[in-house]
Amino acid sequence: MKKLITFVLLMFVGIGLVGCQNDSKKSEGNPKVKQSKVHTAKPDPFQKLIDSSKSTDEIYVTDDITVGKKGDVEPGIYDIEVTGGSGNILGTRKSEDGLFINFVAGAAGNITNDASKIRLILFDGDTLQLDDISKVKFNAVAKEVEPSNELGQGEFIVGRDIKEGTYKLSTNVNLDPQFSNLGWSLTIEDLDSNTSKSQEYNPGNTDVVVRLKKNQVLSIYYDGLSDESTEADDAKLIFTEYK
């Protein structure tokens, strides 16, 4: 009798285990059961530079200007302001794939009407060479900025300084048609893919559309300011939304 009771109990236990296994298999094969995905936000590649930016007092240019903790200026995003002299702002990036630096600037009121302020993105280990410029200041750009569709000379971040999108180019200065190749130069740098695209806006090429994507860097340079009624610091490349 005891053997019969034990056998019956074992049968019920076995049936229960089979039922659990079948329920488990049904659950696994049920197309309505979805695995939850965890989405992590991609970090802002420029946030560290934004946070580390620190304005400087006036610096006499006696040698190359170095970027770093023990250098002349902290890594960051700056409006470099020329307060003495007029000449070239050149740069050597620590990374061979870094942004190209080549601008002309001068102290406010200089006779050649060069811009006195140039926006620069400076990375740790970069070096600036300033020719015929005697004094400069580095003004840290605010942590929060209002995007604008009118940009001057320098380096600007898509998604921060200007919204991503498709734009048609124009300008607020008069371009001299006698110099068809003089005007604005725009380079769109994609640091993630290490690619770039250059575009000119000048009297010989005024029908220009560009497409900008988030975290790209725009390097903007103006050559040949012929409209002397416009101060160089007020000269803007204008981006009008295009559909």
Rank of each mutant, 00 (worst) to 15 (best):
4 L>S: 15
5 I>P: 01
8 V>P: 13
10 L>R: 06
16 G>F: 01
22 N>I: 09
23 D>P: 10
25 K>C: 11
29 G>N: 11
29 G>L: 10
33 V>A: 00
35 Q>Y: 00
36 S>E: 13
37 K>W: 01
42 K>Q: 14
43 P>R: 11
43 P>E: 09
50 I>D: 06
51 D>N: 07
56 T>R: 05
56 T>C: 05
57 D>T: 03
59 I>W: 06
60 Y>H: 15
62 T>Y: 02
64 D>Q: 01
69 K>N: 11
70 K>E: 14
74 E>L: 08
77 I>V: 07
81 E>H: 01
83 T>M: 13
84 G>W: 08
88 N>E: 08
89 I>A: 04
95 S>V: 12
98 G>Y: 12
98 G>P: 12
102 N>Q: 15
105 A>R: 08
107 A>W: 00
108 A>W: 02
111 I>N: 15
113 N>E: 00
115 A>W: 00
115 A>M: 10
116 S>A: 14
116 S>L: 06
120 L>M: 07
121 I>W: 09
126 D>I: 02
130 L>Q: 01
144 E>T: 08
148 S>G: 15
149 N>V: 14
158 V>P: 05
160 R>K: 08
160 R>D: 12
161 D>W: 06
161 D>H: 13
161 D>P: 06
165 G>P: 04
167 Y>M: 10
167 Y>D: 04
173 V>A: 02
176 D>R: 13
176 D>S: 14
180 S>L: 15
181 N>E: 14
183 G>K: 06
184 W>T: 04
189 E>R: 10
196 S>I: 06
199 Q>L: 09
199 Q>Y: 00
200 E>I: 12
208 V>R: 03
209 V>C: 04
210 V>S: 09
215 N>A: 01
216 Q>W: 04
224 G>H: 02
227 D>W: 07
228 E>S: 13
230 T>G: 00
231 E>V: 13
232 A>D: 13
233 D>W: 05
234 D>V: 14
235 A>P: 02
235 A>E: 04
237 L>Y: 07
243 K>I: 15
